[in-house]
Design a protein around this nucleic acid. Structure first.
Length: 738
DNA sequence: CTGTCTGATTAAGAA
DNA sequence: AATCAGACAG
C-alpha cells in the first residue's frame, strides 16, 4: 500500500476528514453504525504511512478486550504486519502492564494479584465482621460502591472530604482498613489498578518522561465511558502534548453507574489544545425505519450534544412489537420467529436476542434448547466468575502467594476437611491482632499450641497440601498444574457428589478450565510473557482470568443465535435483533426510574439496542412474568410509546393455546427431588429437566418436552430424533442424560 | 467443634 | 432462583 491515498478510498467525506486530520488532537463524535472502528483503524494506518508514526509509538485504549482484539486484527489485516507487542488494550490491561513492569516503583509485591468485584465484596464482608461493624448500617454493597467510587475519582482515604459527617467518616475508615488488607495480601482491585498506575506515573517523573517520549499518538475508543480517573490518566500520560484522538458518542453512554462521565467529551474539547471535531452521522448499518425510531427515542433525552443519524438506504420493514401473555409465550414467539427467519437464508449467527438483565436468559435458553436451536451466550455468568472456577483459582493463587488471605480463607475448608468456623476465627483473630497473614498465623498457632488435636492436624494437612502442590508444580506445564490441583485438592470429587446435574456441569467447567489454560499457553494473548511454562505462566493466567472474565465463550464453532445483555451488545451489529422484556420496571429497570439521569441512561441503553439492528427489529414484552420467583404484571415500557407509531407494527398473538408449562416443569423437578431425598435407591434416576437432552437405548437421542405424574410413576415426554415424541415411564425407561 | 439442614433474605449492568 | 446465616444433630 504505497499510495497513501488508498487508505482514504471508500470513505465518505466526514470519515475522510477524520482519518486524514493532521497530527494533533482530534475528537470524533461517531454515531452508531457510522463506521467508527473503520475510521479508527484507518486513522492509525494513515498516521503510520503519511506521518511516519511507528507502530510502537502508538497507544490505543479500548473498553473491552473484545474491542481491543478486533482493532488489533483489523489493523494487522490493513497493514499486513504483526502487531503483537503494540500497546493496544483496555485501560485496565494497560495499567496492569505498567504495574507488572514497574512493580517496585509502584510499591507493589512482585506477585500481586488482581481481584474482581466478587472477591472485593467478600473481602469487605469479612472486614465488617472483623471489626464488628453493623452490616445493617453499612451494607457491604454500599461500602463497596463507596470505595470504588472514591478510587474512580482518584481519592485515597486521606483525601476524602468528610465535611465533619460522622457516617462518611466511618466509611472512609473502612476504606482505609480495606486498603490495608489489600496491601497486606498483595491484592489489587480494578479501581486500584488504574489509581496505582496513575500514581506510579505521577510520582516518577523519569518514568513519566519515558512514556511521554515513547508514545507519538494516543487513541481512546468509547470515550463517553471514561471516568474521572481515566481522564486524569490520559491527561497525565499525554501531558496534553502528545497528539490524541478520542472517539465517542454521548448517546451511547451507558456506564454512568460505574463512574463514567460523559462530560469528559466536552472537557477534552476544552482542556486539550486545538481540538478538531468531526461528526460522523451517516449510518451504514440500519434501515431508515430503524434509524428513525432510534432518533425519535433518543430525542426524549434532554442532556445531549445533538446529533442526527441518517442513511440513504431503504426504508425497510417496520419494527414489530409483540405482547406475550406471559414470559413463556414471549420466549416461544421469539424462537418461532427466528426459526422462520433463519429457515430462509439468514444465518443463526445473524440473530441476536438482547435483554436487560442476565436473569432473563434462562427462559430463553430453555426454549431454544427445547426447539433444538443452537445458541451462544455472550458474557452471561462469566466463566471465571463461577464458584467452582474461583475455587481452583484460589488454590492456584496460594501456590504463588501464601499471603493471599482472601484465597486462603476461601478454600481452607473446600472441600470440607474438618476446619470449621471456630478454627478459622482463631486464625483470623491472631492474624489481625499481630498484623500477619493467615498463613503465618496458621503455623504460629500450631507451633504454640493454640490449635491442638484435630484442628491442628486438619490445618497442617491443608498447609502441607499447598506446599505439596507447589512442589509438584515444578516442571509441569500450566494446564498440567491446573489438572493436578483439581485432582489432588479433591475439588472434582467434591463437585461430583453435588446433587443433580449441577455438579456435573461444574466438573465440566473444571475440565474446561484446563483447556482454557492449554489454549492460553499457545494463544497470542496480549500480556502473555515469552516464557509459557509453569508458575510464570500461572501468574499471567491468573491476571488474565481476572481481567478478561469471559470472552472465552466468543468462539464460533457452530452457527448459533447470540444471546447477550444490552450492555454487552454495544459495538456489535446483527441483521435481526430481538429486544426482550420491554416493560416498566425491567427496562427501564426499576432501580433507575426515579432519577432522571439514570432514566436517560436507560433510554440510551435502549437506543444502543435499537441501533444494533441492521434489517429487522422486534420489541417484545409480556403481561405476566416470573421475576425473582414471583409473578409480576408489568406495564409495557414507556420506550414503546416514545417510538413513532407509524414505524411500528403490532404482531397478533397466534391461535395456539398457551398452556403454561411451568406447572409441569415444577412438577418434574419436585418429583425427582422427592425421590432422591427419599432415597429410592433401586430406581437410581438420573437428574432430568425439561429441555434436557437424553439418550434411550432403543430410540436413540432426544429431548425432554414435558413431564407429569409422581414418584415411580412419573412420566416424561421425549422428542426423539427419528421416532418422534413418546411418553416414557421414568421408572422403566433407561434414560441417560447427555 | 464440625457438617448439614432449614428458613430467611435478597435481587442490574461489567473491566 | 440462589446464597446466607442460624439451628441442631453427630
Amino acid at each position: 500500500m504505497d499510495d497513501v491515498t488508498a487508505i482514504l478510498d471508500q470513505l465518505n467525506s466526514a470519515q475522510r476528514e477524520a482519518v486524514s486530520a493532521p497530527q494533533g488532537n482530534l475528537l470524533v463524535l461517531a454515531g452508531a453504525g457510522s463506521g467508527k472502528t473503520r475510521v479508527l483503524v484507518h486513522r492509525i494506518a494513515w498516521l503510520m504511512q503519511a506521518e511516519g508514526l511507528s507502530p510502537y509509538a502508538l497507544l490505543a485504549v479500548t473498553f473491552t478486550n473484545k474491542a481491543a482484539k478486533e482493532m488489533r486484527t483489523r489493523l494487522e489485516t490493513l497493514l499486513g504486519l504483526s502487531l503483537r507487542h503494540v500497546w493496544v488494550g483496555t485501560f485496565h490491561s494497560i495499567a496492569h502492564r505498567l504495574l507488572r513492569t514497574h512493580w517496585q516503583d509502584a510499591r507493589l509485591p512482585q506477585h500481586f494479584q488482581i481481584i474482581d468485584s466478587d472477591d472485593q465484596l467478600r473481602l469487605i464482608k469479612r472486614l465488617l465482621k472483623d471489626y464488628s461493624i453493623d452490616a445493617e448500617r453499612f451494607p457491604p454493597r454500599q461500602v463497596q460502591g463507596f470505595i470504588s467510587g472514591c478510587k474512580e475519582e482518584g481519592l485515597r482515604p486521606a483525601q476524602v472530604d468528610t465535611a465533619g459527617d460522622a457516617y462518611l467518616g466511618q466509611l472512609v475508615e473502612l476504606y482505609h482498613f480495606y486498603q490495608l488488607t489489600c496491601e497486606r495480601g498483595g491484592l489489587v482491585d480494578f479501581g486500584e489498578l488504574l489509581l496505582r498506575s496513575l500514581e506510579l506515573l505521577r510520582d516518577n517523573p523519569a518514568l513519566l518522561a519515558h512514556y511521554r517520549e515513547r508514545f507519538g499518538h494516543v487513541m481512546v475508543d468509547e470515550f463517553q465511558d471514561t471516568n474521572t480517573l481515566q481522564y486524569a490518566w490520559l491527561k497525565l500520560i499525554t501531558g496534553q502534548q502528545t497528539p490524541t484522538t478520542v472517539v465517542g458518542d454521548d448517546d451511547q453512554s451507558i456506564y454512568g453507574w460505574r463512574g463514567a462521565k460523559v462530560e469528559n467529551i466536552s472537557r477534552f474539547e476544552n482542556e486539550f489544545p486545538q481540538v478538531k471535531t468531526v461528526r460522523l452521522e451517516q449510518n451504514y448499518r440500519s434501515t431508515s425505519a430503524i434509524l428513525d425510531a432510534a432518533n425519535a427515542l433518543i430525542s426524549h433525552n434532554a442532556e445531549r450534544m445533538g446529533k442526527k443519524l441518517w442513511t440513504d438506504g431503504a426504508k425497510g420493514e417496520p419494527i414489530s412489537v409483540y405482547a406475550g401473555f406471559n414470559d413463556l409465550e414471549e420466549a416461544r414467539f421469539i424462537v418461532d420467529t427466528l426459526k422462520e427467519r433463519t429457515a430462509t437464508g439468514l444465518n443463526r449467527r445473524d440473530v441476536a436476542i438482547l435483554y436487560r438483565s442476565n436473569a432473563q436468559s434462562r427462559l430463553l435458553e430453555e426454549t431454544l434448547i427445547r426447539q433444538h436451536v443452537p445458541y451462544r451466550i455472550y458474557g452471561g455468568r462469566r466463566f471465571y466468575e463461577r464458584l467452582e472456577i474461583k475455587n481452583v483459582l484460589a488454590y492456584l493463587r496460594l501456590l504463588l502467594n501464601r499471603d493471599d488471605d482472601a484465597s486462603l480463607e476461601r478454600v481452607i475448608n473446600v472441600p470440607t476437611r474438618g476446619i470449621g468456623t471456630r478454627t478459622v476465627e482463631i486464625l483470623r483473630f491472631r492474624a489481625r491482632d499481630q498484623s500477619i497473614p493467615l498463613w503465618q498465623a496458621l503455623h504460629d498457632s500450631v507451633a504454640d499450641g493454640t490449635l491442638k488435636g484435630r484442628a491442628a492436624n486438619a490445618v497442617l494437612a491443608f498447609a502441607n497440601l499447598i506446599e505439596q502442590l507447589d512442589n509438584d508444580a515444578a516442571g509441569l506445564a500450566l494446564h498440567e498444574i491446573i489438572e493436578h490441583v483439581t485432582a489432588h485438592t479433591g475439588l472434582i470429587e467434591h463437585h461430583q457428589s453435588e446433587r443433580g446435574e449441577k455438579g456435573q456441569g461444574r466438573v465440566e467447567n473444571l475440565e474446561e478450565l484446563v483447556n482454557a489454560a492449554r489454549n492460553f499457553t499457545q494463544g497470542d494473548v496480549f500480556d502473555a510473557p515469552e516464557a509459557g511454562e509453569g508458575l510464570v505462566a500461572l501468574e499471567a493466567f491468573l491476571s488474565e482470568a481476572a481481567l478478561n472474565a469471559g470472552d472465552h465463550e466468543a468462539e464460533e464453532f457452530e452457527d448459533s443465535v447470540q444471546l447477550m445483555t444490552l450492555h454487552s451488545a454495544k459495538g456489535l451489529e446483527f441483521p435481526l435483533v430481538f429486544i426482550t422484556g420491554v416493560e416498566e420496571g425491567l427496562f427501564p429497570h426499576k432501580m433507575s426510574i426515579e432519577e432522571p439521569g439514570r432514566l436517560e441512561e436507560e433510554r440510551r441503553l435502549c437506543y444502543v439496542g435499537v441501533t444494533r439492528a441492521m434489517q429487522k427489529l422486534y420489541l417484545t414484552h409480556a403481561e405476566t412474568r416470573r421475576l425473582h420467583g414471583k409473578e409480576v404484571f408489568p406495564r409495557p415500557s414507556r420506550f414503546l410509546r416514545e417510538l413513532p407509531s407509524e414505524l411500528l407494527e403490532e404482531v397478533r398473538m397466534r391461535g395456539q393455546i398457551s398452556r403454561p408449562v411451568t406447572a409441569a416443569r415444577g412438577g418434574l423437578g419436585q418429583n425427582l427431588r422427592q425421590q432422591s431425598v427419599e432415597g429410592d435407591d433401586d430406581l437410581d434416576l438420573p437428574s432430568l429437566h425439561i429441555g434436557q437432552a437424553v439418550e434411550h437405548p432403543v430410540f436413540g437421542e432426544g429431548v425432554i418436552l414435558n413431564a407429569e405424574g409422581e414418584g415411580a410413576r412419573a412420566r416424561v415426554q421425549v422428542s426423539f430424533e427419528h421416532e418422534g415424541a413418546k411418553w416414557l415411564v421414568l421408572g422403566f425407561a433407561k434414560l441417560i442424560p447427555l
